[in-house]
Write a protein that binds this DNA or RNA. Structure first.
Lengths: 263, 263
DNA sequence: CGGTTTTTTGATGGACGTCAACCCAAGTGG
DNA sequence: CCACTTGGGTTGACGTCCATCAAAAAACCG
């Protein structure tokens, strides 16, 4: 059974563009509040009261949790069109923090309003159940992946998933209007190669439960193998099929001889 | 921030005994179908159509997923009073298999009926959202635990959580009526020490993403340390506080000298 | 009691973390 | 224009945790 992107492709329920028109009408009727954040900014911290649920309109952010020993675990990334921390709908406090990775615009919906609408619209409540279920399925996949696949496979899978989600988000917003106060310090996303992923390596490490050093090592291997190329702070996916093969390959694959000699 | 059992204690939303009376009335009105299984039996497999959602009445079972390389990952255990695979409510096929660990009785509710009742009862749909959210929170905790804690900590945490859930389930059903066709090959659970957990080690291994060999080694360490004792196929938690200390201790703790000399 | 599953233990190796350094690009102030 | 800083990325040396292989011991079960 092919693992690669099976789930990422199925990952549609929590993706707003896949909502039906009637659903979207209901959501739009809720009059969200638009919030704007610079890159590398804290949106909220673990434990803070959670009164809204958030939809990413522009930019990328990620939810994370800090451990007592100082390390952090990134729970998930959120691209435009995706919903942040769905599972917290029924919680009064955030169970994980949220930070922006780039300049970001969020649409904040009041929770009590949404909850009130559940009573009036069974469709909406059913929609939320489906969305949360989908997110749970993704979490389960990730859990299995983290325990049963090695760093190579996890990184390959991660890159593919990020590429997929980033591209989907890009299609959603072909004409990227410049935000009012948003600074443009990074090169225009539209100019990036289609298979480029712009993400600091430390974020990959904290997502996959690896050390940044080891992430770097694996990336070097993949580079020497011709699967990827690094350009500045970006990673270009050169050979998607090879990455897919690595990611879905489950038994410990033999390290290619070419790699060992070059290492 | 104490990690131990914080979540397990909070784990109440998906636990049926915590339902309000009105909620339970609604559920009871759905006339579940009772299903009975011997121990070590397949209830359903990954990919099979999923038309019911299941509540454990008696016994213990676990959901799992098989990987291409032959290993399996156990997603979760389910004790009496807990709901199986909540997140699959909106899925047509099971995303993981379910097996019994002991003789088990399940109450199967028809999904379409439940869904129909969502329209009539906003309370019920809200209840399901809360239940799924709770399960998602647990999954997230487990995800963080699997990546960021070592085998010792994971095993200690696992034992504590199992003990908690097993005890809770035992309180729920003090007078354990003998099932009609249920065989009683194992000693009466009521006679077990209150801190005894009866679980094969391979199950711990597959739950925590460890090899059975390593699980055994860590258990030996804990035994030598006086935290636990093994009795037949059961594990008795002798020093709960010590286990809690191990589980919530996050930085790589110094191995006690007593242990090294004895090993 | 014999076959089968579990547990236990040792030996060995690989995967990955940690420590420590160096490089490189971008920004900053002079 | 250049020193300085800063934050990532890159690389090597080394150690630890844990998987794997193999095999014996114990517990279970009919």
């Amino acid at each position: 059974m092919a693992r690669v992107l099976l789930n990422a492709l199925a990952r549609g329920a929590e993706y707003v563009s896949s909502l039906s028109d009637s659903d979207r009408l209901i959501l739009n009727g809720l009059k969200p509040q638009k919030l704007q954040f610079d890159k590398n900014t804290v949106v909220f911290r673990e434990g803070e009261p959670a009164n809204h649920f958030l939809l990413v309109e522009r930019g990328v952010c990620f939810s994370h949790r800090h451990l007592e020993n100082g390390s952090r675990q990134i729970i998930d990334l959120y691209f435009p069109g995706e919903v942040v921390a769905l599972g917290e709908l029924s919680k009064f406090h955030h169970t994980s923090g949220l930070m922006t990775l780039s300049d970001t615009v969020l649409a904040a919906y009041d929770k009590t309003r949404i909850t009130r609408n559940f009573s009036r619209s069974p469709v909406l409540s059913r929609l939320f159940i489906d969305m949360i279920s989908q997110e749970q399925a993704n979490l389960t996949d990730r859990l299995v992946g983290l325990t049963r696949y090695n760093a190579r496979q996890r990184i390959a899978y991660f890159l593919l998933e990020i590429r997929f989600r980033a591209n989907r988000a890009r299609q959603l917003q072909p004409g990227l209007r410049r935000g009012v106060g948003a600074k443009r310090l990074i090169p225009k996303p539209a100019l990036w190669p289609p298979n480029m992923v712009r993400i600091p390596q430390v974020l990959i490490a904290d997502s996959l439960g690896l050390s940044i050093v080891h992430v770097n090592r694996v990336l070097r291997q993949l580079r020497q193998q011709g699967c990827i190329a690094t350009c500045g702070q970006g990673i270009v996916l050169l050979d998607v099929e090879a990455l897919e093969a690595i990611a879905e390959w489950c038994s410990p694959e033999p390290v290619p001889a070419s790699l060992q000699s070059n290492g």
